[in-house]
């Protein structure tokens, strides 16, 4: 499918749109349908469609890091989001904390971790199939 001019030309825009949309879905997740899991899937979808048009090598370049590394960062973020409660507030691991008066809290870090693990997981398995 790398021969399709339309696909090739639009791939970059589709990727940006998909990633932006996936982040939007991630952020709104706490109040509306969405969240890290679904966001990560949409993000992965963006990269897969990019890979269909431009090939796996270009997708790996666009990702900067290997998918497995993104997943690892995600898992580390999720684990780290549980530490403030343990270290500073004397509460159990993963008791989430919020900046006073704002909706910003460690839940967002946790959800971002979920997002990255799902993204990395999906791409680890899909990208090899797009390899030449």
């Amino acid at each position: 499918m790398k021969d399709s001019l339309i696909l090739r030309a639009s791939a970059g825009y589709v990727l940006v749109a998909a990633v932006v949309f996936s982040l939007f879905v991630l952020l709104r997740g706490h109040n509306e349908p969405g969240g890290g899991f679904i966001g990560g899937l949409i993000g992965a979808l963006g990269f897969v469609s990019y890979g269909l048009a431009r090939g796996a090598a270009a997708t790996r370049r666009a990702l900067r890091l290997a998918p497995i590394a993104w997943a690892g960062i995600g898992l580390a973020l999720a684990a780290a989001s549980g530490l403030p409660a343990l270290l500073w507030h004397g509460e159990a691991f993963l008791t989430h904390q919020w900046l006073s008066g704002t909706p910003l809290g460690t839940t967002l870090v946790f959800d971002l971790g979920v997002y990255l693990v799902v993204l990395g997981f999906g791409l680890t398995f899909v990208l090899p199939f797009l390899e030449e």
């Binding site: 706490h30 969240g35 890290g36 997943a71 549980g82 993963l94 989430h96 839940t107 799902v118 990395g120």
Partner: peptide, 26 residues
Amino acid sequence: KGRNVVNVILVDFRALDTMGEIAVLM
């Protein structure tokens, strides 16, 4: 502080379960 109960369960109430699940994915 979330109106989406499904998401709140995933990232907060049952966060440790989710943690285990993403560890399995990893």
